[in-house]
Write a protein that binds this DNA or RNA. Structure first.
Lengths: 135, 135
DNA sequence: GCTTGACCTTCCAATGGTGGGAATCTTTAT
DNA sequence: ATAAAGATTCCCACCATTGGAAGGTCAAGC
């Protein structure tokens, strides 16, 4: 009858978040405790699924659970200043930049080493030499 | 008397790997089981510390414990073909590239959203709008 | 000899985000 | 009525690292 009620599997399929993770998010407080059917199955309505999609999109952008919780409360607050959202996003971009920089540093160093290595059957290897250095 | 014997704290300081992690690496088999003093303290010699430094350098380049184990056994094998080391490193560069690409995708998408957001006291926020989209 | 402080030991737990699986119950379809 | 699919809770695992508690050991100074 209630065509706008989903069980966890349908909510998972519709939102793109696995049932495992939906339960997990509820447990850690990212999601409100779901209502249940008489027999104990979690139920979700359109709004809930909408929230799940919001979470998935945030996750796809690399936000942490804590940050997503903040985003959700800003989303719910119709009087939020957009500056808060922008600041949160900007901080996350900074985090991403840091990580990217770290990975790029690893990559360029490693690329340098790889380009020095013959890569044949002989045992001489500047990669191992550098790793073994005392510096 | 044995000036070439370190306890775990000295090995940690000299190698740049925390005592916690040295114990952990031993437990998971990355390091051989350390010898002990009569009273139970772990002892390390120059070679051990050398190996610890090798591990730290590998870790700094982002290699996983599994990969470091492989690197160590190649290091110890005087008959290794350098091609194996090069291949391992090349695969890791590919991993790094993947991650960098993912992070860059997040970053550019997020940067786009941030540039659309006024960031003032008004509640309208294209960042939240996009996160809430049904797509 | 005794205290103090720095160091070591083991054990247990937490982080974050996700996945796997077991045992058991409910729903749905044949 | 029965079988399959899907739900429930529970525990465990990954990866690398950190923290803390409770207790033993070592070296210095008094």
């Amino acid at each position: 009858m209630n065509s706008d009620l989903y069980n966890i599997g349908q909510a998972a399929k519709t939102s793109g978040i696995s049932a495992k993770m939906i339960r997990h998010y509820e447990e850690v407080g990212l999601l409100p405790v779901a209502s249940r059917t008489f027999s104990g199955y979690r139920t979700y309505n359109h709004q809930d699924v909408h929230m799940l999609r919001f979470i998935r999109h945030s996750r796809d952008l690399g936000f942490s659970i804590k940050q997503i919780a903040d985003l959700l409360s800003l989303w719910r607050d119709i009087n939020r200043p957009s500056s808060k959202v922008k600041q949160l996003a900007t901080e996350h971009i900074e985090m991403l930049n840091q990580k990217i920089q770290e990975l790029n540093a690893m990559k360029s160093e490693l690329t340098r080493l790889v380009s020095c290595c013959h890569g044949d059957e002989r045992p001489d290897c500047p990669i191992l030499d550098e790793l073994a250095q005392d510096k």
